Simulated assay, not measured.
Amino acid sequence: MQEKARAVLDPVHYDYYAGGAGEEVVLAENEAAFRRFALLPRVLRGSENRDLGVDLPGGHARVPVLVAPTAFHRLAHPEGELATARAAAAAGTVLVSGMASTTRISEVTAAARAAEEAASVWFQLYLQPDEDVTECLVRRAEQAGCTALVVTADSPVLGRHRRDAEHGFHDLPAGLAAENMRDLPGTAHGGVRDIAMSPSMSWDHLARLRELTTLPLWLKGVLHPDDARLAVVHGIDGIMVSNHGGRQSDLVPAAVEALPAVCDAVSLPVVLDGGVRRGGDVAIALALGAEAVGIGRPVLWGLAADGQAGVRRVLDVLRDELDHVLALCGGRSLTDLTRDVVVTRGCGRCGQ
């Protein structure tokens, strides 16, 4: 799918999606780290049918592979987020719709519910320095029928992307905009605000968000177990272990390497986001303690390659591969993927 996407995308837009921060060390490590783990199967425990479903704060997914938030889907395909929403809903999984979407959230949720009445759509949010803007975005997500909010916390400043700098890519083409940022407080009618990143964001801002809404709150961008513990104190309902797909700092661990310590620190549901490219990667993440994973770039490659059908194909491949791996491990359900079935290649020790 990635090669098909590369063939049809504007090279500037391909590099925007594909690129990472700095020298792209973390970008590569997110995928490579999975290869350092192996699964130790159990035998003679099989079942003809395996349950891949998972219940999360904010909705049920028939497969533990969520569509992670990514920006500007209409760069990949004319139908953009609408095609992604329909594919995720039809596959029975959760769509986390990005704040930097080229389609407004009300239209995204409508498309998802038209494809599957019970579809779960979550809204990804960057806390804004202007709290009136944050509140307006929250109310829009609630009115659109979103069933959870995902606060991305790893972006006090934007990452530095060499590829974008080389291309001079800073603005969307004419006719495209971050539609969720239109008609917000402080803008003229029809105006679009920039998404503000601010180093001043703190746990106090998260506490005020918790007071604003009764929706389940997920905190995305957590790598340190102490931050996961603080999230519990501040009323967070779920943690997303993520390094922003390698797009922020080029000095952090691979997401899957940070996963076990976070899972051990809290009893909240944990989702791993970063580097998942195979059903086996999903199985490894679940065995290390995650409830589910999120995928970003693979969705964009499917969308660019073949629109809604391409996204659905990506999700179906991961579901089928996960089911196959679970069968080979002697599992009946996802709960059979436990820490004791993960080993580190070359030493045979448990992946913890």
Rank of each mutant, 00 (worst) to 15 (best):
A285P: 00
A76M: 04
A188R: 15
L251A: 15
G346W: 14
A118L: 06
E3F: 06
A100N: 13
G22R: 08
P129F: 01
G175V: 12
A32C: 06
E3L: 14
R229N: 04
C329R: 07
D273E: 12
G159V: 04
L212M: 11
A258L: 03
T93G: 15
L286R: 02
N180H: 13
H324P: 04
A261H: 04
R210E: 03
Q2F: 12
S333Q: 11
P57M: 03
S155Y: 15
E3R: 14
R193M: 12
V256F: 05
S267Y: 07
G46W: 11
L217M: 08
C146L: 14
G280T: 15
G175A: 10
I239H: 05
G58K: 00
V241R: 08
G19R: 08
Q2N: 15
G145E: 04
E31G: 11
V133R: 04
I239G: 02
L209V: 05
A283G: 00
R345V: 15
R345T: 05
N180W: 04
D154V: 10
T214F: 08
A174H: 05
R339Q: 09
K220R: 09
Y17L: 14
Y14F: 05
Q143V: 00
L158S: 13
L127T: 05
T344H: 15
A32K: 04
G279K: 01
I236D: 08
